[in-house]
């Protein structure tokens, strides 16, 4: 399997570390909403089909990448830098 790293290009999956479900939102650090924290830490969407997920190019540029990948076929549909994405919808500094 190849993961397209926006910086390094297509690289073998062995260079990457999987960081899981990219649909989770970390609550505001001072939030005391237990349910929201639980959801962030423990609950996963786990779809059969397109999955938005985070990979780190740990054996390469070490950037985190948001990848949309089909879990039925392993075909990668899209990838982008996690940092760019989170910048775009920047939340309040926390």
């Amino acid at each position: 399997m190849l993961i397209p790293c926006p910086y390094c290009g297509q690289r073998d999956v062995s260079e990457f570390t999987y960081q899981g479900d990219g649909n989770r939102t970390r609550p505001n650090p001072s939030s005391t909403d237990r349910a929201a924290w639980n959801a962030y830490v423990y609950d996963r969407t786990n779809p059969a089909g397109e999955h938005r997920e985070i990979w780190q190019h740990s054996g390469g540029c070490r950037a985190h990448i948001v990848v949309v990948r089909n879990t039925l076929t392993h075909a990668v549909v899209a990838s982008s830098m996690a940092r760019a994405r989170t910048r775009a919808d920047r939340r309040e500094p926390t």
Binding site: C8, E15, G59, G60, R62
Partner: peptide, 10 residues
């Protein structure tokens, strides 16, 4: 330049 790894060796 390229960043890559040979197994555990970056």
């Amino acid at each position: 330049g390229r960043s890559t790894s040979h197994h555990d060796i970056f």
